[in-house]
Amino acid sequence: MNTPEIRIENVSMVYSDNGASVKALDNVSIDIQKGEFISLLGPSGCGKTTLLRIIGDLLQPTSGNVLVCDQTPRQTRMDQKYGIVFQSPVLFDWRTISKNIRLPLEIMKVPREEQNRRIESLLELVGLSKFADHYPHQLSGGMQQRVGIARALAIQPEILLMDEPFSALDEFTREKLNEDVLQIWSKTNKTVVFVTHNIAESVFMSDRVCVLSPHPGRLSAIVDIDLPRPRTKEMRDWPEFNALVAKIRNSFEGV
């Protein structure tokens, strides 16, 4: 086995504000291979966001080690290798939709021509071409979230960290975007860490599902999803698919 792209070793995180302390993660270890699509699955408050932020160097763990691309998360972040989709869309209100997607491209000094090309194709992908010149407040919450996804994809990141990117979307849009993200991912061979609390979604998307249990956040199981790729809508009805969903659901009941 190659060295993993992301190595999480005995990571614990304790939040403490004014005396009270919350143990959000307890001794979590996961190795994620390059090009792997991994889901972090678990109920609210089990530390999914915390772990994602630690990987992305937005938070320092209380103890334990994280290596990304054989270096510290800090170095990887400085190399501009992360694309992050946050739980809320975080659009800049004063920028139009296309300018919001342009933001990271400006920071990374991508040539203007290339910026335009990517923005156009991403807007098409998330179905918002008509809204390129609209401002965020003119879009619905789900549309805004799609802009956030397009913005993260725009920089063609080495590592894509997504925090419940589809939780605000309706079932139809969610399933369509599930497939779209998978399609982009299959073309680019990027490593994806995908946070969700939707079991079926995690099965549909992932190579492996890391099941977290709350209070404190522990890794309670890692489930291999050996469904073939490319994944298609029809697979959602396969007995194998439903067996995996059931298996994961049962692993929660054991907690």
């Binding site: 160097d57 501009q80 992050i84 004063w94 400006e106």
Partner: peptide
């Protein structure tokens, strides 16, 4: 600033200067 907007800029390894001119200043208009 909107929650996570500083994190967003951090994830791009934006400089303090870029955070000021691309985020803080327009936010203050």
């Amino acid at each position: 600033l909107k929650p996570f907007s500083l994190d967003l800029m951090a994830s791009y390894a934006a400089t303090r200067r870029e955070v000021f001119f691309l985020l803080r200043l327009p936010n203050s208009i």
